[in-house]
């Protein structure tokens, strides 16, 4: 994967542009971090709404609805929120991977480079 020079700084960099490389890396790192924070904010909002919101603060109001034989607020507190938590982690892992690839900061080929270091 020669089009991803960021992983192997100091190895085979063209001699005239290593400062450019450094600046590009810093800029994409900044943009990546902003994108990451935006994604985290969205997912943590969902986390807060299903647990503290639906499970506790809004639970009494939600209890007037029935869901598969449960009062809805009770279901969120003892079942639903847990399912959403699991989904949130996998959604984060999936979305952030796409963002990382976009900025060329992913670690997709890293198990290979690790073995190289071992030898």
């Amino acid at each position: 994967m020669s089009e991803q020079p960021y992983h192997h700084q100091g190895e085979n960099l063209p001699p005239h542009d290593h400062n450019d490389q450094k600046i590009i890396l810093e800029q994409s790192a900044k943009a990546y971090w902003q994108a990451n924070l935006a994604l985290l904010a969205k997912l943590l909002l969902v986390w807060f709404v299903v647990s503290f919101g639906c499970g506790i603060l809004l639970a009494d109001w939600l209890d007037q609805f029935t869901f598969f034989g449960f009062k809805l607020g009770f279901w969120f507190a003892q079942q639903g929120a847990i399912y959403v938590f699991v989904a949130l982690i996998f959604i984060y892992a999936w979305r952030i991977n796409i963002i990382e690839r976009h900025f060329g900061l992913d670690d997709d080929d890293e198990s290979v480079s690790k073995n190289e270091v071992h030898q």
Binding site: W47, A77, I82
Partner: peptide
């Protein structure tokens, strides 16, 4: 519910 929510919701914070 505090135990169910608390002991699982923490993993979201941990992972994110």
């Amino acid at each position: 519910s505090v135990y169910l929510l608390g002991w699982t919701g923490g993993y979201v914070l941990l992972a994110l």
